[in-house]
Write a protein that binds this DNA or RNA. Structure first.
Lengths: 357, 357
DNA sequence: TCCCTGCGGGAAAGGGCTTTCTCTGCGGTA
DNA sequence: TACCGCAGAGAAAGCCCTTTCCCGCAGGGA
């Protein structure tokens, strides 16, 4: 691999001069030398060693991002927003997938610190886990103490800058909508219990139901992985236990799509027999059939804001931006069926009783 | 930011010893010193500077990946495969999105070279563009000359290791299926003309039709962006021009989903009135309604193979692995309707004529 | 008792770049 | 004519690590 001194030697100049030409330094260099250097660069296919550069330069430019999984549409959208701002400012992004593993998250914080990123963005739900939260905060504090900037998206644990989707309000919206449509037997397929996103959304939902004199008992909640298969499976369990359900709210759209699949497999018409509500409004939501009624979160905007926060000037007080959720009515939520399926519910019930046989 | 010498000083040892403890060097260090160093590391929250390490160490470990867009399910799946192998081998991945911009692709090759990656993987269609191809090959050759390994996924232009999905065979499969179902008026919504993936798939399709004594005239092809909206829009244009179409094949699943949306909006029943075929079999394909009939490509496996090629021992001869395509029959392709819609076709035609008014 | 061996530790040389500082030589002023 | 100032180029000092090389010392064999 050609080095700067190779280039300098070939051009018959000092490394200092070569460096100045290549980086467009403010220090003037005569045209003749400049051209000799440029020619040498081209001939040798020289590319500066990024690590040496970062070591020599003081200022750090890259930004580290830790998400659960970029290929999950939720994070893909957020990342799009992050990218947009970063690209505008000529920043390189280092994106790491934690796959919802807290230990991996901790590791990535170290790794990114080691890579001298100028800022760190953690996106995705926090965990109900004291020990982990403390450890993470320690690490983040250490990083911030050395001048690093940190912002989180959608997690409470960090005390600094944050952009927070209003998960609770979103849950509330979902609950109110279903109540308005007359539903009483509402089931929930939720993400992992340990995620704060799950509990926040659930809390909002429960609040809405309670205000309407309805309930959300634990037996009508099923926890599963926050993805399509988790949703499909949780829906099946929910239906087996409670065949008279007239609505199921999924705590994210991927799960909702899984729910739709299970419902279709069981021959239940959506929304005529049973309503489904999603959460997030990821792009595919409008393309499933029937199109998904869901709670929209401004995902791209969340990314944009977080990156702006972290790249902008530091504020004395930590800034917390709460971004509103919004209900998007499409075709999966309808009024509660007049003849509830409770009468026909004897068949599934029989099946449950049948486990004794 | 604490440095190694800070740690050494605090522990009362030399930087050499500190380094040995931290990296678990083979050289023995007494337990007492080891503990002093470890304590200092913890107290100072020391994290080694990755750039300095990479500079000091000779061996390069990270792998660079250039894709069109990780959040596109096609690349998300491939990336999953790449990740799997990379993680197994303790390699860090640097993933860059070119957003199908050739210039950006060139830039990223430089950038990754500068970051001293041990290998480079380019995934995604090549371009019908001589000048670009030549430039890219020059850059790759320069990189390989310095010991870098390169593999491409799904592009012809590179002369080295490659894993190639059999796009042409896939197109052929799609064509044969449709012919078998009796379709004659087949439209195609294709990705950008400049992509080799587009032309390969098209070529296979055309071959199948020709063999069956059918044709694929240019007027039955519409080129658009390789995404959902591109597919929706191309389908609209196609239908406007040719209302008697009984089948449309989309050159990827995202476009197929767009096609489904347009068809639904126009009240055309799939597959009763019109059949739709996709390509790729991305995960969502089975969850749209009706479930998408499509040509499956082993996306994850493609990633696995490419990474294995590049991380494995070099072969004297470039290795090209062609991975087969496979037809997945679901619910969007059916037999050609008996009463062709040609009779009802007058309405759209009238609409087109109406542009004169 | 002396010498050799080997272990544990430190000194120092890079690795490739940026940047400050220094030096040379030229044009311009007194 | 002597001197000052400055433009343009190079020397060299880092940046933070790893790793080779070397040294001192303790223990074992002759």
């Amino acid at each position: 691999m050609a080095t700067l001194s190779d280039v300098a030697r070939r051009a018959g100049v000092s490394p200092a001069t070569a460096s100045r030409v290549i980086n467009g330094s403010s220090k003037p260099v005569t045209d003749e030398l400049r051209e000799r250097v440029l020619a040498a660069v081209a001939e040798l296919q020289y590319v500066p060693n990024a690590h040496a550069q970062l070591l020599a330069r003081s200022h750090r430019s890259a930004v580290g991002v830790i998400v659960h999984d970029v290929s999950d549409p939720y994070f893909a959208e957020i990342t799009r927003g992050l990218q947009r701002v970063a690209t505008d400012q000529g920043r390189l992004l280092m994106i790491c997938n934690s796959y919802r593993d807290p230990d991996r998250e901790l590791e990535y914080v170290e790794l990114l610190r080691g890579h001298q990123v100028a800022a760190l963005i953690l996106a995705g739900s926090g965990y109900h886990d004291e020990a982990f939260t403390r450890q993470l905060n320690e690490k983040l504090a250490a990083y911030e103490a050395t001048g690093g900037r940190v912002a989180v998206i959608g997690r409470h644990e960090h005390s600094g800058d944050a952009v927070m989707p209003d998960n609770r309000a979103g849950g509330y919206l979902a609950g109110r909508e279903l109540c308005g449509l007359g539903h009483r037997a509402i089931g929930v397929i939720a993400g992992p219990r340990i995620l704060t996103t799950t509990t926040d959304r659930l809390a909002g939902l429960r609040q809405a139901l309670t205000e309407q004199g309805r309930e959300l008992p634990e037996r009508r909640i099923r926890y599963a992985e926050f993805d399509r298969d988790g949703g499909a499976e949780a829906t099946a369990r929910l239906l087996d236990a409670d065949p008279e359900l007239t609505a199921v709210v999924a705590l994210n759209d991927s799960m909702a799509i899984g729910a739709l699949a299970t419902l279709r497999a069981r021959g239940l018409a959506v929304p005529q027999q049973i309503s489904v509500l999603g959460f997030d409004d990821m792009p595919i939501a409008r393309d499933v059939t029937p199109a998904l009624t869901t709670v929209r979160l401004p995902l791209v905007h969340m990314g944009v804001r977080a990156m702006s926060l972290v790249l902008g000037v530091g504020a004395p007080t930590p800034r917390v931006e709460v971004l509103p959720a919004e209900l998007v009515r499409r075709d999966t939520a309808g009024p509660v069926p007049h003849s509830t399926r409770a009468t026909a519910g004897s068949a599934p019930r029989a099946r449950r009783g049948g486990t004794a046989s």
